[in-house]
Design a protein around this nucleic acid. Sequence first.
DNA 1: ACTGAAAAGAAAGTCAT
DNA 2: ATGACTTTCTTTTCAGT
Lengths: 149, 149
Amino acid sequence: MVKDDLDWKILELLQENARMSFAQIGRVVGLSPSAIAERVQRMEETEVITGYTAQVAPDKLGWSLSVIIMMSVNRINFESFTNDLSHEYPEMVECTRVTGKDCLIMKFHVKNSNHLEEVVNRLSRHGDPTTLLILNELLKNEPIRRSIN
Amino acid sequence: MVKDDLDWKILELLQENARMSFAQIGRVVGLSPSAIAERVQRMEETEVITGYTAQVAPDKLGWSLSVIIMMSVNRINFESFTNDLSHEYPEMVECTRVTGKDCLIMKFHVKNSNHLEEVVNRLSRHGDPTTLLILNELLKNEPIRRSIN
DNA sequence: ACTGAAAAGAAAGTCAT
DNA sequence: ATGACTTTCTTTTCAGT
């Protein structure tokens, strides 16, 4: 798991820049590269760290519209809908089930409003989607820090 | 920007594992390490790639409850609220402004329901928050792929 | 659990092709 | 963009504490 403040410092650094070398991290926290490697490996194995991802700008890649779509999917269709999501909806980047009547909150990147309409049409077979256009991502993927108890 | 399919393949690989070495990527896509380095550097400079982040499991770190909170903040208070968000709300990991009456959708990790109440109380000074408990993250940080055409 | 040393591997730079 | 080359840095492994 997470043992001490050093582990927390390592987690913070890797959340800010996942490509930092163990040597670089070691210099900041005051441990040898091998000690960092061991700690990171332990946190990977215990799934405290679940992966490392590059963040990309969808608008620079032809996905110029981002939306949040909320939809209730009734229990009968729920499994068939949530099964194979990323395959059925390649433009979906997030899907969160939340409390409320079988409610899903999803995030999509689409090319334009025609593409959005097409996505909404596909979704409509499973429920009644509410679409919110994303105007500004004020905070995104903010690092998780130590819970101060 | 993004020149060709090779760039796209590199982006896919880095979104799946941001710690891959240029040499590893080169072996997969069939280019030399220095060619990969140049392409990645170009995509960083043009801000196609905006960063590299480690993904961590909040529940293994003492943040056992995750919630989405929606709230309208009227235009007068909007700037004062959105200014210094991560400092005022360290438990906030996402804040998205969407269409609708000055509407914000936020994501928080909290320790427990008491902590959640405390967060809701703090928010209530700026608007009327609606809280949805996250039950399951079916899709999270799904890689962005090539827009077909 | 950490250090330090040695070997292997990768990165960053140069240059010619 | 590659290949050859050098220098520097990093990872990995392992013996030692």
